[in-house]
Design a protein around this nucleic acid. Structure first.
Lengths: 206, 206
DNA sequence: ACAAAAATTAACTGTTTAGTTGAAATAAAT
DNA sequence: ATTTATTTCAACTAAACAGTTAATTTTTGT
């Protein structure tokens, strides 16, 4: 019977998963080395296979958990029963909090999805696609009443997602061109998190 | 003496480069296989090493040319001597044309930069950083006159870049959640290219 | 206290992939 | 025409890497 002797926080399995998550998220599936994961977790490389069988399987766990960690949280915010302005403020504020807590996930997922666009297609369709439709419908209804900017609902949603996600994906470029160090960039993100929800509402509704 | 017998378009060296560019841009450095590049170029794998010595060197050529192809074009648009509204319309319109012609470059560059953030730091600083500063200054001056939205210049610029670049990076997700096929998504991009410059001006200036 | 199960390790093997080689074909130069 | 340089290729080698094994230590149940 498998029983943890050490507390969950420092169990070998968890140390491996966390090291793997870090390495896969920064290097991608092929860029990651099993030895590097083992080193970062401070365990023998055999333990990776002992707990996760193969690189592929370990990656799959990291990949799926990365998505499951953020996607359901985010899309649920789109279908709360609120007037558009409240929903937008709520959605953007919480979305930014979630990405901020998981800043490496967007680029990681998009790179992997780019290599293999069909992977997770059904998951995306069911977990995101389905739940985005009612929000788009709400946008269209407000547009008919003349309450939104004059753009198709999909374009508005892409504007919103773009402004929230891109700074995290583009960090290495932005940090250099604005000549910021790590702390300065973190403050830039904090400033953004404070200003953006209101800006999105102002530039989307009227 | 090296002399091309076939015309430039179909020379082996060029076929290799183009195949390498496609494969590296969609799979990344480590995800790419030399054999896959050879197959796509329809040449023997040895030719890759004959012309480019190593995977690393071939990659470097592709990576640098990807940047040189787009970066100078884009930043030059920021320092033309035009009033802000004209400059913004001009910048966004042409920027979108350039990305649209090279849609795979942003994700490619950002993924590689994420793996190795210091690489190309001086290039970025000199080619982009320096040239962005005067534009930020122009934004700040207009802000003082009360002509722009009330946000720090850097945040405004990030908003603009986000809305232009993200749809290309996020294509695999967006296409699925909006349930679009390739052609429908291309039309979505075309619509965006038409609507976005004006939207950016409206949401940035006042 | 002891046996059984689980966890850990160092050394090893197998596979994949980048890179080489030497011979053959083709093109260019004399 | 014949030599010389370049280009191409199939078969090979070398290196890096994932994955295995078997022996050892630690933990757990009785």
């Amino acid at each position: 019977m498998k029983e943890e002797s050490q507390d969950e926080q420092s169990s070998t399995e968890k140390k491996i998963f966390e090291a793997a998550r870090d390495v896969f998220q920064s290097k991608g599936l092929e860029g990651a080395r099993m030895q590097e994961i083992a080193d970062k977790a401070k365990i023998n490389k055999s333990m990776l296979h002992y707990y996760y069988r193969s690189k592929e399987k370990l990656f799959e766990k990291v990949y799926q958990l990365s998505l499951i960690k953020v996607i359901p949280q985010i899309v649920s915010l789109l279908n709360e029963d609120l007037p558009l302005e409240q929903k937008l403020l709520n959605f953007t504020t919480k979305y930014l909090e979630i990405i901020r807590a998981n800043p490496d996930i967007p680029l990681f997922v998009l790179h992997e999805l780019n290599k293999n666009p069909t992977r997770l297609k059904t998951f995306m369709l069911n977990e995101v696609g389905r739940k985005v439709q009612p929000f788009l419908e709400q946008l269209r209804q407000e547009a008919q009443k003349g309450n939104t900017v004059d753009l198709p609902a999909e374009q508005i949603l892409v504007n919103i997602m773009s402004m929230m996600i891109f700074p995290f994906i583009g960090r290495p470029v932005l940090q250099v061109i604005f000549e910021m160090d790590e702390d300065e960039f973190d403050r830039f993100i904090e400033e953004r998190v404070n200003l953006l929800p209101e800006f999105i509402v102002r530039s989307t509704l009227k």
